[in-house]
Design a protein around this nucleic acid. Structure first.
Lengths: 341, 341
DNA sequence: CTGAAAGCGCTTACAG
DNA sequence: CTGAAAGCGCTTACAG
């Protein structure tokens, strides 16, 4: 069963394709009678415009691309959900691609999306990304690009973020306020901006409170991920190297869960012997034992706002307006639970 | 900066568009010299074919649609990952839409994908879906459709599933083997085929072991979801109504986690007073306390196989072959952990 | 080996 | 109010 075309409707009604097209789009210069006839026939024939032809004519696909480091991830899947739900409201579809935290793959995915001529691109950077040519290439082709969560400060585009430094400060301050005297930090990978900012927030909180900053208490991950195993490994290392540590601020809840699992295994009592604050408020953190004190990061909202910003820029470019990049910062909150006193 | 077209290349080289097109696609009837010239210029100009035009000509978009009940979901996000990664290998892009477990939305999403003329559709049904017209409409338009995990037996298309009945039987048998005498079942919502099959497996295991099947021990969810709160609520109800129950087979790990949280709150010891087996092997189940005995369900593999089956059918239809629907069943395994003896 | 021509299905500026 | 015509950028059967 072949899809119905404008021509078939036109032929059956003995009018021109032009008139059919205009009637369906409610142009004012078509008689109500013709409009009614056309619309009725279109409905009974189940006509839907051939989007390939429409795309070619209008040069837009009503489709955006999303490049994300990892789909199986509590925070990112919430972002995806927020993006999809907003896109739907305005008839946009979302193509999702993973970078697996790899710069090479991220670059490839961007090129793929560009060659498929999506109307705009949403991206959260891979941890391995340190070069931004592929992103600037998008902007240079007048294609809107919006970054969220994991951004590059040097790329000139809109960014939806949280204040990682402030949130990390809040987390560390909470450890201090609840009596911790020697606080370590699991920093995650080296490159990403939010690792850097969270680290800076941690450090600033220590110094502001007159505490010593000891670089040997900052633990990096081996590779470009933030995994459960990173938490286990760093917890084991910390336990051997710095038995006097009584608090840890950990980059990501998943890593915190790994650390807790290791401390449980070692018989280290949380929060009596060591307090832990995570980051991101993964669902898991509220059901694990002990439940984890963490920073709530509004993934769903971030997705919604990121899409809407991109959509705005798509419309602006269509209307030949110049885009002025915006930085939108979302609020975070400390969620107190059992892993701190 | 406007994208480069074939015409521009042709003009610069003083040859025809036809020849340029053929040269780029390595047609045998173009001289090696011309090919080299064209390819070189195309590369320096950074030419990429306009996919809108290609789609219109070839009537295919190299894009598939995926309709899924929920993105923020451990099992489904693994499936998504499997689908995307396989699609990428053959140059296919994936548009993801959510049904939110609603039949109405699912129907709308299917229509959206059809009107965007994706090459095929992958779907896992919403719990609320009991009518299959929207799915048959896809098939009737010769568009390949492949279902996975949550399927409709009555729709004639390929299906990638696990043997839910057998897996549920295995889970229940494990409870029996570890000494449970009175076993309840949290069944989830009423409609979906895998709820039905898991229930049947549970019942069969009881009867095969000469145990009584008591319908009052089967707990349904209030709405069409499988949530943490369903687990809490049903656990609370069960505790009041059937204090003698010493084992529960629970439809989904997330619900099992809710139940465990409630039993922890009530001071019911797991597995000493009550044993629990979940379903799906969510990551969380391996880190919560107690860790949960469950059925491992290979989401990533299921996604890969589902895409490859769809891809095969897309190619078959392109070659005017008739599709013979296939049912592919994946193996599951019981993962023994602390929530059972 | 090269190219003119038709056509995929639509939209829209223009003429009547 | 209606419609002929051009064109979006490509592919491919056909002619030379």
């Amino acid at each position: 069963m072949k899809p119905v075309t404008l021509k078939e409707i036109a032929d059956k009604l003995n009018i021109s394709v032009t008139t059919v097209s205009k009637a369906l789009k409610d142009y004012p210069d078509v008689s109500p009678k013709t409009k009614a006839l056309v619309k009725e026939l279109a409905a009974t024939l189940n006509y839907t415009p051939n989007s390939f032809a429409v795309n070619l004519r209008t040069k837009e696909s009503k489709t955006i691309g999303l490049v994300i480091p990892e789909v199986v991830h509590h925070f990112f899947s919430n972002v995806i959900k927020g993006i999809i739900s907003e896109a739907e409201k305005v008839g946009y579809l979302v193509i999702i691609l993973q970078s697996n935290e790899s710069y090479e793959l991220e670059k490839k995915q961007i090129e793929l999306l560009m060659s498929h001529r999506v109307d705009g691109i949403l991206i959260s950077l891979a941890n391995g990304t340190a070069d931004f040519k592929h992103l600037n290439a998008v902007i240079n082709q007048d294609k809107p690009l919006v970054m969220f969560d994991k951004i590059a400060k040097l790329v000139k585009c809109s960014k939806i973020i949280i204040d990682d430094q402030k949130a990390a400060y809040m987390a560390t301050q909470h450890l201090i306020d609840t009596g911790c005297k020697r606080i370590a930090h699991f920093r995650g990978p080296l490159l990403p901006q939010n690792s850097i900012d969270r680290f800076l927030g941690y450090k600033k909180a220590l110094l502001d409170n007159g505490m010593e900053y000891d670089p040997s208490l900052v633990y990096l991950n081996d590779c470009d991920e933030n995994s459960f195993d990173d938490g286990k490994m760093n917890a084991a290392k910390l336990y051997k190297e710095h038995n006097d540590v009584d608090g840890i601020f950990i980059n990501t809840d998943l890593v915190a869960i790994g650390a807790i699992s290791e401390f449980n295994r070692l018989g280290v009592k949380i929060p009596d012997e060591i307090s832990i604050v995570g980051f991101s408020n993964w669902f898991m953190s509220s059901v694990i034992s002990p439940t984890i004190t963490t920073i709530d990061q509004p993934g769903y909202t971030m997705g919604q706002i990121a899409f809407n910003q991109l959509y705005k820029e798509i419309k602006d470019i269509k209307n030949s307006l110049t885009i002025t990049p915006e930085i939108i910062q979302l609020e975070t909150a400390l969620i107190k639970r059992e892993s701190t006193k």
